[in-house]
Simulated assay, not measured.
Amino acid sequence: MSDFDLGGLLTFWGRRSDDIAELVLQHVAVVVLSIAIAAVIGIAIGIAVWNRPVSRSVTIAAAGVALTIPSLALLALLTPVLGLGWTPTVFSLVFYSLLPIVRNTVVGLREVPPAIMESAKGMGMSPARILLSVQLPIAWPIILTGVRVAAQLTVGIAAIAAYVAGPGLGQFIFMGLSSLGSRNALNFALTGTLGVIVLALLLDAAFVFITRVTTSRGLRV
């Protein structure tokens, strides 16, 4: 790979600005879509198993084992079934996002103080109302932390999904790796890598803001 040239990199960015902007938007879109789907599924699973010891243990263990599957291997296995592009990318990102979301949902719901639960029951609240009005608001910061961790995972794994023609900045990374020795190989790889890092930082900052805005004032640290 050629030596680093800052001027050349800046020139590369200027000439490829439209392509870079398009890939950034694709990367953001696939991450946001996947996290939204994973959050709905993961929180629902967490709610379903948090007070069932056997189901809870099996679910968290299964999600943990699933997380050990190499992302490239999973994408390669999905390609014959789901084809190339967005579909296998979204599926794999949702797949890897479930563990932190499910685990934090379970932890958050279980950490609601028993005294508060008993008080809610004493006020005549139904289990469903206790869940929606008491447990979820108290557990929300912990749940959102799980979503935040999942989002960081998906930003990185989305780059690897370029292996199956997935959208996003990974295309530049793979382009650079596949053209080692060429004039712009390092520029492609650096642009993709730096873009992923910046997106991860911006997404993390966004979750800090979302957590603050959506958490009850009495629960804010």
Rank of each mutant, 00 (worst) to 15 (best):
T89L: 03
L190A: 12
V32I: 15
S178W: 00
G156L: 04
A206N: 05
P167N: 01
V208Y: 09
G146Y: 06
A206P: 13
G218Q: 10
A150V: 05
A36S: 15
G156W: 00
R110H: 08
R217T: 14
V155G: 02
S179D: 10
A200D: 06
L131N: 05
A159H: 03
L153P: 05
T105H: 07
V30S: 02
M123E: 11
I142L: 10
D3E: 13
A150N: 00
R110N: 15
V164N: 02
L180N: 03
L84H: 10
S133V: 10
Q135K: 11
F174M: 11
G156E: 04
E118I: 15
A206Q: 08
L144H: 02
G181F: 01
G181Y: 05
I35F: 04
S34P: 09
W50C: 13
R183P: 00
V107M: 11
N51K: 13
R52V: 12
G176S: 00
R217H: 12
W13K: 01
S34R: 02
V221Q: 08
R110M: 14
A161I: 01
A38S: 11
L202N: 12
P88S: 03
V58Q: 04
N187P: 07
A205R: 14
T154C: 13
L9H: 14
A159N: 03
I130M: 14
G8T: 03
G122D: 11
A161W: 00
V102K: 09
L25Y: 05
L67Y: 15
G166L: 03
D18Y: 03
T87P: 01
A36G: 09
R220G: 10
F209H: 13
L33M: 14
L144G: 01
R16E: 14
V28L: 15
T79C: 08
I138D: 08
R217P: 05
G108P: 00
G168Y: 01
A76Q: 12
F207N: 07
L109T: 03
R148T: 09
A63S: 13
M175P: 00
L84V: 06
R220P: 01
G166N: 02
T89P: 01
G7I: 05
R16Q: 13
P88N: 04
I210R: 00
I142N: 02
G192R: 05
D19R: 12
S2K: 15
A29F: 10
F207D: 11
S55N: 10
L219H: 00
S57M: 14
V81Q: 09
M123L: 15
L72P: 12
T87F: 10
L144Q: 09
